[in-house]
Write a protein that binds this DNA or RNA. Structure first.
Lengths: 226, 226
DNA sequence: TTGCAAATTTGCAGGAACTGCAATTATTCT
DNA sequence: AGAATAATTGCAGTTCCTGCAAATTTGCAA
């Protein structure tokens, strides 16, 4: 099994996808990857992202620069969230075929669920989050990562619409409608995530859901349409 | 007057801001800048962004590489939209103090007006647009540029809320609410822009407004809240 | 017009990110 | 153990980008 081909064109950064479970090899790889990430973030937090060189990171994690690039493909790669949190086929189907009354609520739950499930190492997550939000360049990357996710979820919403019997030929804007639903839900998620991080990861998902749902409602119903 | 300090940290790319009007100097600078942009985009369209080197661009526009970086600070700089289209103080005030019934509509008009007013050279605009949307790296930049704009407009919406008497202490989520309003309006704008470009810049702003407004309405009113 | 001051362009040296290639070392399989 | 496979590494080279100081151009005033 070859490591992470630098499939850089598609703005792929890297994946922690370890399809093998328990070979010495894959455990070692996972360990190395984690070490590099940790050192990278520690250095970034200590000296500021732009003052950290790949060489420093390598020195701190005792790998060669070449190996660093084998793993991450780019300096940023070591900083940007590893997982592309995709819903399971099951979650996907449930959402598409679910006929609940509120697309927003269900979409939000879907995203929430997928997103939170993916993050395992809280400490790493926090460090990365702090660093990203104090580094414009990383923040930009993060934002575009998020907007890639949004594309995907917009696809799901579109599927759901079609499953509800609405067709693109019938409603040409259907795709745009899907995108806007996602934009709104995503705004809500950003909000929720901020609360969650600010509150040190304490509040329950249920509480967040309630608050957020109220927010969406307020935004969209205070409006007097022309 | 010094040229464009490479204020690169704040993800500033460059500005075509020519505060002087008519000195030979500034006209020459403007011309050079335009030439470089044109050549850069032409080369990008011809060979693909990543296969174009700064040296090629320089050769095509007869400036030294060092001068290129004096102008644009980065390779991307020559490709990403130059203007940061900000509303005039007048437009800003009108929006903040306007008490119309639909924030969305007025925000959309504000953005639309500011945005379209800024683009003068249609041909350049089209070329850039085409190239950006076929180059992931540039698209990311563009997206983050857009989300910077969104920040700004979210600020305006917040001001408007406050002008309406709503305070942050009263409603802690007020800022988030502003962001969500912008997210929605921005989704609408993206939609509108796409139509506009696809239709070869023919449809009137009024038509777009109507279609878009209908879209927003559909998204937010088909919803049965929990 | 001439000559000085300020703005602009340029060359050069060098740092840092990144890639391809081939050699070396470590793991896995038989 | 020994062959097959995978991971790591070194090295040379390209490209982006920066600082600095010298050369050139332009604006302006005597």
């Amino acid at each position: 099994m070859k490591i992470d081909l630098p499939n850089h064109t598609a703005s792929q950064l890297c994946s922690d996808d370890d399809s093998d479970q328990h070979s010495l090899r894959s455990r070692k790889r996972a360990a190395t990857r984690l070490t590099i990430r940790r050192e990278a973030i520690a250095l970034g937090l200590a000296h500021g992202y732009e003052n950290v060189t790949v060489e420093m990171i390598c020195a701190a994690s005792t790998v060669s620069p070449r190996t660093f690039f084998n793993y991450f493909g780019s300096k940023e790669g070591a900083y940007i969230s590893a997982h592309k949190p995709l819903p399971t086929a099951q979650q996907h189907r449930d959402f598409v075929e679910g006929a609940g009354p509120s697309v927003f609520r269900e979409l939000f739950e879907l995203i929430c669920g997928t997103f939170l499930a993916a993050e395992t190492d809280l400490e790493l997550f926090q460090g990365r989050h702090r660093l990203i939000y104090q580094t414009p360049e990383l923040l930009n990357r993060e934002k575009s990562r998020i907007s890639e996710m949004e594309e995907i979820f917009a696809g799901y919403v579109l599927e759901r619409f079609q499953h509800e019997g609405r067709s693109t030929t019938d409603t040409p804007d259907l795709e745009d409608e899907a995108h806007m639903v996602v934009a709104l839900a995503s705004g809500a998620l950003r909000f929720a995530l901020q609360k969650w991080v600010a509150g040190n990861f304490t509040s329950t998902r249920e509480t967040l859901m309630r608050t957020t749902s109220a927010l969406i409602q307020r935004v969209t119903t205070n409006e007097h349409w022309p």
